[in-house]
Amino acid sequence: MEILLFYSVALVAVLSGFLVIRCQSPVNSALGLVNTFFCLAIFYVMLHAPFMAAIQIMVYAGAIMVLILFVIMLLNLGIEARKRYTHGIVWSALASLMVLFGTIYFLKRGRVTGAEGDLTAFQIESIGHTELIGRSMFTEFLLPFEIASILLLVAIVGAVVLAKKEV
């Protein structure tokens, strides 16, 4: 039952990801992106990570998508952006199919590790998922967390540099 749910959600995720790049109107693309984010949130729930699912919906599907929609509407893209671009679609489809079959071929031959981490479903139930994420983020993975803050700072500086008016 769970595997059926997984595959149907995955199918929707991939299809809406495809819509993001194939839609004529940018607003439709943005809505496709929202759909993909929702599917990913469902995966988080299936992986016993409800906090991640909530964050995914609130931050990505909520805040970031609203911003993207605002930008699209403020830019008021003309006819040029709505043209349908079809160049290279056959070749890219062939290439992606080859990558897909290659990947499936290798995945069939190998298997996942039997190794289990320190966390069990029981621990997640008793301590709480949010608390466990917080603990590992601020102890074991503190340094990547700090580097990620530099990364975001660079992104903000970049947005300002590229978008501000001439001084």
């Binding site: 993975f141 990364l151 660079v154 500086v157 590229l162």
Partner: peptide, 23 residues
């Protein structure tokens, strides 16, 4: 691998901006 990934992203992001800095 986490360190590898995040360090790679940090400097690539800075380059995206530096390349387009002349508007």
């Amino acid at each position: 691998l986490v360190g590898l990934f995040i360090a790679l992203e940090t400097f690539t992001l800075a380059f995206y901006i530096l390349i387009a800095s002349n508007r």
